[in-house]
Design a protein around this nucleic acid. Structure first.
Lengths: 191, 191
DNA sequence: GTCTATACTGAGATAGAC
DNA sequence: GTCTATCTCAGTATAGAC
């Protein structure tokens, strides 16, 4: 599957715009301007805006899995892998301070719209959750692995929300540090 | 100032609907249906939708301050007061599981809309932050009071986001318990 | 102070030429 | 596959009667 098809360009532009402006606040005109196609052309590739959203979520699922695989390959220990996740808060800071977490903010928006794709959107969180659970299991915390995974997700969500509200990079740095220490302490505990 | 004026009814209905459906996704027709007035009548009381939003934020600011004063009066120790804040996650669970935190979700939405009232909305967070900082200061953590306040805000935000994504009440109960223990341990530390 | 009627705009979506 | 033209509808906002 080529990545230069018009369809793919639409999905990539929509992905970015849905993140930056929100799903509802992004119009076809916005996407059309970015991709430089006409509005009518959308309906050759998608049957509705909801359809584009589904494609965007699928893209995010696939990108997420790719990223997790990369971390799996690059880091040697489960603790290091979990820290890769935590550090997105810093590596992606320029986006997060403006638009928050792409996963959390989409789930929140779709919940308020009572949108049919709510569950699909939360599946992105589930991918992270399962992967983190796996990592915690391997550090010897099998029984509580899922709770710990949820805790990491919640922690980073909260930091992202407050960070974007107050634009406070120092707070993020401190919290990332604390989270990494916490992961480290959990690991050395049991090993 | 009477609370039965049409103006006040509009603001109260808008407050609820902005929370449940989001600001942008709430139309005048939605509010009009709730208050049972005609759409034209809005413009006697407000000059635009943005104007209603400002009034809603002012209402929230005032309601928040009222709630904090109540906690201040009802609880004897700073630690107990901080726990009052933490426990909103449970007392308001039925709303939170559906719509998330009213403060956080509004800030997030306005950030994506790049809306003029962004700062006004984040002022609601600041009211909580300053109050929590006060409480921590009184437990003897003056130097780190602000960081601890932000941490409580971030923690509860994260729990609210994950809880509404996965509809997981048990997770919320566990985290509220942990947060309360943490507050308790901070307090007994220094007293 | 509240209503009805209506103007105006931008959105999603469709039809059909090329 | 892509375009232009157009439809329909919902949204904000205005004008003016009562």
């Amino acid at each position: 599957m080529s990545n230069n098809t018009t369809r793919h360009q639409i999905v990539e532009a929509a992905d970015r715009l849905f993140y930056q402006r929100g799903y509802e606040h992004t119009s076809f005109a916005d996407i059309a301007d970015t991709v430089k196609i006409s509005r009518g052309n959308f309906y050759y590739h998608f049957k509705s805006k909801d359809d584009i959203l589904e494609a965007v979520i699928d893209l995010r699922l696939s990108n997420t899995k790719g990223m997790l695989n990369k971390w799996e390959a690059e880091a040697d220990t489960p603790a290091e892998r979990i820290k890769s996740y935590i550090r997105i808060l810093l590596t992606n800071w320029n986006n997060i301070k403006q638009f928050g977490c792409p996963v959390g903010t989409l789930c929140t928006e779709l919940a308020k719209l009572n949108h049919a794709s709510q569950e699909e959107a939360s599946a992105v969180f589930t991918v992270f959750r399962v992967w983190l659970r796996d990592q915690f299991t391997r550090t010897g915390h099998k029984k509580e692995a899922d709770t710990l995974a949820l805790r990491v997700l919640a922690w980073s969500q909260g930091v992202a929300t407050m960070a974007s509200t107050f634009q406070d990079e120092q707070f993020v740095r401190k919290e990332v540090e604390r989270m990494c220490c916490w992961v480290e302490s959990l690991t050395s505990d049991k090993e």
